[in-house]
Write a protein that binds this DNA or RNA. Structure first.
Length: 216
DNA sequence: CATTTGATGTACT
DNA sequence: GTACATCAAATGG
Protein backbone atom coordinates (compact mmCIF):
# COMPACT_ATOMS: atom_id res chain seq x y z
CA UNK A 1 0.00 0.00 0.00
CA UNK A 2 1.46 3.38 -0.99
CA UNK A 3 1.96 6.19 1.46
CA UNK A 4 -1.17 8.31 1.51
CA UNK A 5 -0.08 11.60 3.00
CA UNK A 6 2.10 13.34 5.57
CA UNK A 7 0.52 11.32 8.35
CA UNK A 8 1.98 8.10 7.03
CA UNK A 9 5.47 9.50 7.46
CA UNK A 10 4.84 10.49 11.05
CA UNK A 11 3.51 7.04 11.83
CA UNK A 12 6.29 5.03 10.28
CA UNK A 13 7.68 2.72 12.95
CA UNK A 14 5.09 3.74 15.53
CA UNK A 15 4.14 0.98 17.97
CA UNK A 16 0.38 0.45 18.53
CA UNK A 17 -0.99 0.80 22.04
CA UNK A 18 -1.56 -2.52 23.80
CA UNK A 19 -4.39 -3.62 26.07
CA UNK A 20 -2.65 -2.57 29.28
CA UNK A 21 -2.86 1.06 28.15
CA UNK A 22 -6.66 0.88 28.34
CA UNK A 23 -6.79 -1.09 31.58
CA UNK A 24 -7.09 2.13 33.60
CA UNK A 25 -9.94 4.50 34.46
CA UNK A 26 -11.22 6.40 31.43
CA UNK A 27 -10.29 9.78 32.89
CA UNK A 28 -6.65 8.64 33.08
CA UNK A 29 -6.64 7.13 29.60
CA UNK A 30 -8.40 10.08 27.95
CA UNK A 31 -5.65 12.76 28.14
CA UNK A 32 -3.08 10.17 27.07
CA UNK A 33 -5.05 9.57 23.87
CA UNK A 34 -4.68 13.16 22.66
CA UNK A 35 -2.34 13.35 19.70
CA UNK A 36 -2.52 9.60 19.15
CA UNK A 37 -3.62 8.33 15.77
CA UNK A 38 -6.48 5.85 15.41
CA UNK A 39 -6.24 3.74 12.27
CA UNK A 40 -9.07 1.80 10.64
CA UNK A 41 -8.27 0.57 7.16
CA UNK A 42 -7.36 3.45 4.86
CA UNK A 43 -8.35 6.27 7.24
CA UNK A 44 -6.25 7.58 10.14
CA UNK A 45 -7.34 10.29 12.56
CA UNK A 46 -5.14 12.20 15.02
CA UNK A 47 -7.27 12.61 18.14
CA UNK A 48 -7.71 16.18 19.39
CA UNK A 49 -10.74 15.84 21.69
CA UNK A 50 -12.02 13.01 23.90
CA UNK A 51 -14.35 12.52 26.88
CA UNK A 52 -14.15 9.99 29.69
CA UNK A 53 -17.19 8.15 31.05
CA UNK A 54 -17.13 6.46 34.42
CA UNK A 55 -18.27 3.28 36.04
CA UNK A 56 -21.79 1.94 36.69
CA UNK A 57 -23.50 3.63 39.60
CA UNK A 58 -20.81 6.33 39.84
CA UNK A 59 -21.17 8.48 36.74
CA UNK A 60 -24.78 9.43 35.95
CA UNK A 61 -23.72 10.65 32.49
CA UNK A 62 -22.38 7.24 31.46
CA UNK A 63 -24.37 4.81 29.37
CA UNK A 64 -23.35 2.16 31.91
CA UNK A 65 -24.72 4.08 34.91
CA UNK A 66 -27.87 1.93 35.22
CA UNK A 67 -26.21 -1.33 34.31
CA UNK A 68 -25.91 -3.56 31.30
CA UNK A 69 -28.26 -3.43 28.30
CA UNK A 70 -27.92 -4.99 24.83
CA UNK A 71 -26.63 -1.66 23.51
CA UNK A 72 -23.89 -1.06 26.07
CA UNK A 73 -22.84 -4.69 26.60
CA UNK A 74 -19.42 -4.19 25.03
CA UNK A 75 -18.61 -1.55 27.66
CA UNK A 76 -18.72 -4.32 30.26
CA UNK A 77 -16.24 -6.43 28.30
CA UNK A 78 -12.45 -6.32 28.34
CA UNK A 79 -10.55 -3.04 27.71
CA UNK A 80 -9.25 -2.01 24.32
CA UNK A 81 -12.40 -2.70 22.32
CA UNK A 82 -14.67 -0.31 20.41
CA UNK A 83 -18.07 0.56 21.86
CA UNK A 84 -20.10 1.97 18.96
CA UNK A 85 -23.59 3.17 19.82
CA UNK A 86 -26.46 4.59 17.82
CA UNK A 87 -28.01 7.81 19.08
CA UNK A 88 -30.55 10.48 18.17
CA UNK A 89 -32.05 7.97 15.78
CA UNK A 90 -29.37 8.54 13.16
CA UNK A 91 -25.81 8.91 14.43
CA UNK A 92 -23.08 6.56 15.55
CA UNK A 93 -20.44 7.49 18.11
CA UNK A 94 -17.36 5.47 19.09
CA UNK A 95 -15.69 4.86 22.44
CA UNK A 96 -12.75 2.77 23.52
CA UNK A 97 -13.56 0.54 26.49
CA UNK A 98 -11.40 1.03 29.60
CA UNK A 99 -10.91 -0.94 32.82
CA UNK A 100 -11.25 -4.74 33.16
CA UNK A 101 -14.11 -6.99 32.12
CA UNK A 102 -17.23 -6.44 34.19
CA UNK A 103 -16.61 -2.78 35.06
CA UNK A 104 -17.88 -0.55 32.24
CA UNK A 105 -15.84 2.61 31.63
CA UNK A 106 -14.74 4.18 28.38
CA UNK A 107 -13.52 7.16 26.39
CA UNK A 108 -15.69 8.81 23.73
CA UNK A 109 -13.72 9.84 20.64
CA UNK A 110 -15.07 13.33 20.04
CA UNK A 111 -12.91 14.88 17.31
CA UNK A 112 -9.68 14.69 15.39
CA UNK A 113 -7.69 15.56 12.32
CA UNK A 114 -7.73 13.16 9.36
CA UNK A 115 -4.05 12.50 8.66
CA UNK A 116 -4.42 9.69 6.09
CA UNK A 117 -7.17 8.52 3.76
CA UNK A 118 -8.80 11.94 3.52
CA UNK A 119 -10.36 11.07 0.16
CA UNK A 120 -12.08 7.99 1.58
CA UNK A 121 -13.18 9.96 4.64
CA UNK A 122 -14.59 12.75 2.48
CA UNK A 123 -16.45 10.27 0.28
CA UNK A 124 -18.07 8.78 3.38
CA UNK A 125 -18.96 12.19 4.79
CA UNK A 126 -20.56 13.41 1.58
CA UNK A 127 -22.19 10.18 0.43
CA UNK A 128 -25.74 10.71 -0.72
CA UNK A 129 -25.60 14.48 -0.25
CA UNK A 130 -24.66 17.36 -2.48
CA UNK A 131 -22.41 19.08 0.00
CA UNK A 132 -18.74 19.77 0.47
CA UNK A 133 -16.78 19.14 3.65
CA UNK A 134 -13.58 20.96 4.54
CA UNK A 135 -10.57 19.04 5.86
CA UNK A 136 -11.14 20.65 9.25
CA UNK A 137 -14.70 19.31 9.48
CA UNK A 138 -14.03 15.74 8.32
CA UNK A 139 -13.86 14.37 11.87
CA UNK A 140 -14.89 17.41 13.95
CA UNK A 141 -17.53 15.96 16.29
CA UNK A 142 -18.13 12.42 17.54
CA UNK A 143 -20.68 11.35 14.91
CA UNK A 144 -18.64 12.90 12.11
CA UNK A 145 -15.51 11.13 13.37
CA UNK A 146 -17.38 7.82 13.35
CA UNK A 147 -18.44 8.37 9.74
CA UNK A 148 -14.91 9.37 8.67
CA UNK A 149 -13.47 6.21 10.23
CA UNK A 150 -16.28 4.05 8.84
CA UNK A 151 -17.59 2.94 12.25
CA UNK A 152 -21.17 1.64 12.40
CA UNK A 153 -23.11 -0.87 14.45
CA UNK A 154 -21.13 -3.69 12.83
CA UNK A 155 -17.93 -2.35 14.39
CA UNK A 156 -19.27 -2.49 17.96
CA UNK A 157 -16.84 -4.70 19.89
CA UNK A 158 -13.92 -4.50 17.45
CA UNK A 159 -10.52 -5.09 19.00
CA UNK A 160 -8.43 -1.92 19.09
CA UNK A 161 -5.23 -3.72 20.13
CA UNK A 162 -2.89 -5.80 17.95
CA UNK A 163 -3.69 -7.88 15.98
CA UNK A 164 -7.15 -6.30 15.82
CA UNK A 165 -8.53 -4.35 12.84
CA UNK A 166 -8.25 -1.00 14.62
CA UNK A 167 -5.07 0.37 16.21
CA UNK A 168 -3.96 3.48 18.04
CA UNK A 169 -0.48 4.73 17.19
CA UNK A 170 1.89 7.17 18.83
CA UNK A 171 1.23 10.09 16.48
CA UNK A 172 2.38 13.56 17.51
CA UNK A 173 1.73 13.95 21.26
CA UNK A 174 0.87 17.44 22.47
CA UNK A 175 2.94 18.90 25.28
CA UNK A 176 1.50 18.80 28.79
CA UNK A 177 0.80 22.51 28.51
CA UNK A 178 -1.30 22.02 25.36
CA UNK A 179 -3.86 19.78 27.03
CA UNK A 180 -6.99 21.42 28.39
CA UNK A 181 -9.92 19.89 30.26
CA UNK A 182 -13.43 20.96 31.16
CA UNK A 183 -17.03 19.81 31.49
CA UNK A 184 -18.32 17.25 29.04
CA UNK A 185 -20.26 18.38 25.99
CA UNK A 186 -24.03 18.12 25.88
CA UNK A 187 -24.19 16.31 29.21
CA UNK A 188 -27.07 17.20 31.50
CA UNK A 189 -25.80 15.51 34.66
CA UNK A 190 -22.42 15.62 36.39
CA UNK A 191 -21.64 18.97 34.78
CA UNK A 192 -18.89 19.54 37.34
CA UNK A 193 -16.86 16.52 36.29
CA UNK A 194 -14.12 17.92 33.99
CA UNK A 195 -13.65 14.81 31.89
CA UNK A 196 -13.57 16.43 28.45
CA UNK A 197 -9.98 16.75 27.25
CA UNK A 198 -8.78 18.56 24.14
CA UNK A 199 -5.68 19.96 22.44
CA UNK A 200 -5.61 23.67 23.14
CA UNK A 201 -5.94 25.79 20.03
CA UNK A 202 -6.46 22.92 17.60
CA UNK A 203 -8.99 23.91 14.94
CA UNK A 204 -10.43 20.39 14.70
CA UNK A 205 -11.75 20.49 18.28
CA UNK A 206 -15.54 20.62 18.18
CA UNK A 207 -17.41 23.65 19.50
CA UNK A 208 -18.38 23.20 23.14
CA UNK A 209 -22.10 23.08 23.72
CA UNK A 210 -23.58 22.99 27.18
CA UNK A 211 -26.62 20.81 27.58
CA UNK A 212 -29.81 22.65 26.65
CA UNK A 213 -33.20 21.15 27.43
CA UNK A 214 -35.24 21.09 24.24
CA UNK A 215 -38.59 22.69 23.88
CA UNK A 216 -41.28 21.16 21.78
C1' DC B 1 -22.09 35.21 12.95
C1' DA B 2 -26.32 33.13 15.96
C1' DT B 3 -30.51 30.64 16.70
C1' DT B 4 -34.03 27.28 15.52
C1' DT B 5 -35.67 23.00 13.97
C1' DG B 6 -36.26 18.34 12.00
C1' DA B 7 -34.47 13.78 11.71
C1' DT B 8 -36.02 9.49 15.03
C1' DG B 9 -33.49 4.54 17.73
C1' DT B 10 -32.93 3.23 22.34
C1' DA B 11 -33.59 3.49 27.20
C1' DC B 12 -36.28 4.96 30.53
C1' DT B 13 -40.52 7.03 33.61
C1' DG C 1 -44.92 9.69 26.80
C1' DT C 2 -39.72 12.07 27.50
C1' DA C 3 -34.62 12.54 27.23
C1' DC C 4 -30.57 11.77 24.82
C1' DA C 5 -22.46 11.58 24.86
C1' DT C 6 -25.77 14.97 17.46
C1' DC C 7 -25.73 16.97 12.97
C1' DA C 8 -27.16 19.76 9.00
C1' DA C 9 -30.26 22.82 6.87
C1' DA C 10 -32.92 26.83 7.19
C1' DT C 11 -33.50 31.28 8.94
C1' DG C 12 -32.23 35.98 10.90
C1' DG C 13 -28.67 39.79 11.60
Amino acid sequence: MPADGPGEQVLAGSVPLTREFFDRPGHEVAPDLLGRVIVHGPVSVRLTEVEAYGTPGEDPASHTYRGRTPRNAVMFGPPGHLYVYFTYGMHYCANIVCLPEGVGSGVLLRAGEVVAGAEVARARRTAGASRTVTARDLARGPARLAVALGFTRQDDGLDVCPPGPVNVLRGDPPGEGEIRSGPRTGVSSARETPWRFWVDGDSTVSPYRAHVPRRR
